[in-house]
Amino acid sequence: MGQIISLGVLQSAVELGLVYALVALALFLSYSMLNVCDLSTDGCFTLGCAVGAIVALAGHPFLAIPAAMGAGVLSGFVTAQLQTRFGVESLLAGIIVNTGLYTINILVMGKVTLNLNSTTTLFTMAKVAFGGGYYKLLLALLFVVAVVAVLLWFLGTRLGLSIRATGDNASMVRASSINPAVTVTVGLCVSGALTALAGCLIGEYNKTCDINMGTGMVTIALASLIIGETIFGRKSIGWRAVGVVLGSVLYRIVVAIALRLNMPASALKLVSAVIVAVAIALPTIRAKAAFYRKKRAALAARKERKAC
């Protein structure tokens, strides 16, 4: 390991993996639980960063977190209302909101990039509080542990169980006197809050906020989610959530190694896209391969019988 990747590179990969795990957890809720493919993730991530940065620049580093999350809730709320109350296809609802957010993000930021170099943020405060070289890691870990704990608690409540059932069996949900419009709305609001929180933390981590920073985020988060669920299995809900976090960390380590091996940074998005496409297509490819094997065997057996 030492030759390919230094400890410092590994550490920052883990830090990034932990923060980006919040986006993967957001998709864990919307994609795996609610079965809604929410394409507003990219814009929502940038929105969180923009709102968080503006509030931090105004001198409120703590307020930046709830402000960013609140903005994410709003974004999720709009996406959810479009699909549950106004009959907009869920994919389209996400795309529409994502497009609208581009303008909103520029309006929030006032320009296309913000510089947080000399601003007090949670990370600079953590440096003072924790000291040493691990303050970023500690802060990121703190957030992830808190989010996973709250999320797991929430998914065991009446509302959380209803959200999980909504994506699992629609007819059972209605027969259980649950309004799917409510569960989808709450689910997307929570998922928006987590995405925006991740955006806010990444902005503070990198000390910059850019209008294009969210591009491709949904694919990258899906890749982490799929890596997590494939490698760490689909056992209990708790293990799945932990698997998603580890998947995100693993993804960032692989990226760090790839960059170390001189892969151009611009190739990252293609690699993520291929991972997601292959992982989602795999069951279909397997089924087709099995069918063709069977068909070939049956045809061969028939030919043999004719020859006799």
């Binding site: 169980l161 999980r164 059932a165 699992d168 069996n169 007819s171 059972m172 949900v173 027969a175």
Partner: peptide, 9 residues
């Protein structure tokens, strides 16, 4: 029988 219960829960 599949309609009344959530299979992954």
């Amino acid at each position: 029988p599949m309609k009344g219960t959530a299979p992954h829960m």
